[in-house]
Amino acid sequence: MSLSLEDVNHVASLARLGLTDAEKETLREQLSSILGHIEVLSQLDTDAISPTAQVIEVDNVMRDDSASPSLTQDQVTQIAPRSEKGFIAVPSVLGGPDEGGSA
């Protein structure tokens, strides 16, 4: 399994990870190698096997729809990197070069 630099760029963009060129090259090599080890799974015929996403049997868990105190506005804005007048302040959402999501 060998990844191209294009693959790495695509996945990094999906993951919103800013990577340097050196990091991209290292990751290209390392991920290719790890995926090579993972190829071992193709030895197994799993056509008739159902997947396991998690191991416990749980049904939908419901609770009463009743109001209870949550974190206060102060608690939330205190841990935000930047806040203004009780709101969390963020940079411009629209109008940037990557408007519309992944490249």
Binding site: P81, V93, P97, D98
Partner: peptide, 17 residues
């Protein structure tokens, strides 16, 4: 955005990256 460290750039997308 909501907590942790932010490296702020001009746009949200660049800030994420």
């Amino acid at each position: 955005i909501k907590y942790g460290n932010r490296k702020e750039e001009a746009t949200l997308q660049e800030t994420y990256l």
